[in-house]
């Protein structure tokens, strides 16, 4: 079970390893604030959808499995969207249309299909948590790099009250060298590709080590 949880971070990281949910991870990673907000929303939807799908896995007719999953996911996302709209209006505004697009995030449907439909409730919940945190982890990595290069500092606000900064810093020395390109699409693609290559490198190296150990 711990292995399931850990896999979501490095080896099977949904974003860098499996290339799932790229759309939102590129668009939302402009700031640490958005990244954490989006990551949490996805994690919550993922845990609940995994639990629900797993709970009804024995009574779902196989032919209409996917429509059932889509209805479950769409309902959950609507609920999360309304909650965020009501209690975290600033986050709602900055995530914009991408909050609703969680419905079509391949990670959620993919995990429901590949894991939750075959495993008991507990394991599915852990898998959802692991994958969700793996996704959040990837978003945070990209967003920290982008925000640092684009603005020369990092700020993380209290999601319930945007005037209150929980933590943040500015590096004075970086200020003259900020590249605003990194807050746009070019920076997103570049940062993402560097991380994807890094993760592929780690994966290949550990595969090589395993092979040598077997010999």
């Amino acid at each position: 079970m711990w292995q399931n949880f850990k896999n979501g971070f490095i080896k099977e990281n949904p974003v860098f390893g499996l290339y799932l949910g790229l759309c939102s991870s590129l668009a939302i990673s402009t700031s640490l604030n958005n990244a954490i907000g989006m990551g949490m929303c996805v994690t919550i939807v993922l845990i609940f959808s995994n639990v629900l799908v797993s709970a009804i896995r024995k009574i779902t007719p196989d032919e209409i499995r996917i429509p059932v999953y889509i209805v479950i996911i769409a309902t959950l996302v609507s609920i999360v969207e309304m909650i965020v709209h009501a209690f975290m209006p600033e986050l709602y505004d900055s995530l914009g249309v991408f909050l609703g697009l969680i419905v079509v995030n391949c990670i959620i449907l993919g995990r429901a299909e590949a894991f939750a439909s075959k495993n008991p409730i507990g394991a599915s919940a852990i898998d959802g948590l692991g994958m969700g945190l793996g996704y959040t982890f990837a978003l945070v990595l990209i967003s920290v790099v982008r925000e640092l290069i684009a603005t020369g500092g990092i700020a993380f606000y209290n999601p319930f009250d945007a005037t209150q900064i929980i933590f943040g810093f500015n590096i004075e020395a970086l200020a003259p060298y900020t590249v605003s390109l990194f807050s746009g699409s070019v920076g997103a693609f570049l940062t993402f590709s560097c991380f994807a290559a890094l993760f592929a490198f780690i994966k290949q190296r550990s595969a090589k080590k395993e092979k040598e150990a077997k010999k």
């Binding site: 290339y19 999953y69 391949c106 449907l109 993919g110 299909e113 590949a114």
Partner: peptide, 16 residues
């Protein structure tokens, strides 16, 4: 094969 939408009927499940 680059796309990982596992619900797609053309997805190579067996090779996963």
């Amino acid at each position: 094969e680059g796309c990982r939408i596992t619900t797609c009927p053309h997805h190579p499940h067996s090779t996963e």
